[in-house]
């Protein structure tokens, strides 16, 4: 069954092993977790590996100017400025809002349509195959109702999937959150959920990763400890013998 869907390798070897080869092509995946857990780094690495494989990437920055983001980004051994210029398009969403006259606190259904049309236009124009929206939570804030959030994510996912795009939606979680997304809707309409966390064990703080759900593939649901390094994200299984606490 795992061979039915074409895979998009994230390029993070251990994560691709967990997913039996990668994310099923066309899936929309929620990359969710609290601050400092590695969501943006993982998403960028997904785009960088895509660019290295000749797949154009689109990074839509909602909360942080992409220029600042690139300055603070880890210096990967396999990462170069030329690669960014050639393989990844960085767009700051406030510029799109400005261009479309959408500088308002609450979006209507028409606004949602216009926003999706514009993202799709960029994807078509540059033949983009990997998309990251960082973060979806900030867009959801302007949609305000569960119905509109659901409508936005479903329409966007469908449109991008039809274009052969695999999409990562970065979702901000409060450390105290019970579910996998701030509004509760994002997790229900996404094809996959990759949960990143901070785990405290006897005073040590470990970064963790767990694939909670991924449509179109069997996968491990175990928890892994994550390290962000210059050669990319590395993972090892979480040892179960310790008394730990999730933050």
């Amino acid at each position: 069954m795992d061979n039915v869907r074409e895979r998009v390798p994230t390029g993070i070897e251990a994560l691709d092993n967990i997913l039996n080869g990668g994310v099923p092509k066309g899936n929309t995946v929620l990359i969710t977790g609290s601050a400092g857990t590695g969501k943006t780094t993982l998403s960028i690495e997904f785009l960088v590996h895509g660019a290295m494989a000749g797949e154009k990437g689109l990074y839509i920055s909602v909360t942080e100017a992409s220029e600042k983001l690139l300055e603070n980004l880890i210096n990967y051994d396999f990462f170069s400025k030329e690669m960014i210029q050639k393989g990844i398009i960085f767009i700051d969403i406030p510029e799109i809002y400005e261009k479309l006259g959408m500088n308002k606190l609450q979006f209507t259904l028409d606004d949602i349509n216009i926003l999706i049309q514009n993202i799709v236009k960029i994807v078509k124009e540059f033949n983009v195959k990997r998309v990251v929206i960082d973060s979806i939570t900030s867009i959801c804030y302007r949609l305000q109702t569960e119905e509109k959030i659901m409508e936005f994510i479903l329409r966007l996912s469908k449109a991008l999937s039809e274009l052969g795009c695999t999409t990562f939606l970065v979702s901000e979680l409060l450390p105290s959150a019970k579910g996998y997304s701030q509004y509760g809707v994002e997790e229900a309409v996404s094809d996959g959920i990759i949960l990143l966390g901070n785990l405290e064990r006897k005073g040590d703080l470990l970064r963790t990763l767990r694939v909670v759900k991924m449509r179109g593939t069997s996968h491990s649901r175990a928890t892994y400890v994550l390290d962000i390094t210059s050669i990319g994200i590395l993972l090892v299984p979480l040892l179960k013998g310790g008394g730990e606490m999730y933050l």
Partner: peptide, 20 residues
Amino acid sequence: VESPTMLENIMLKTQYILNK
């Protein structure tokens, strides 16, 4: 590695050296 209690990180750093 910050502390000898961070056993997973010992494996991760070893993996890092091996891969790099």
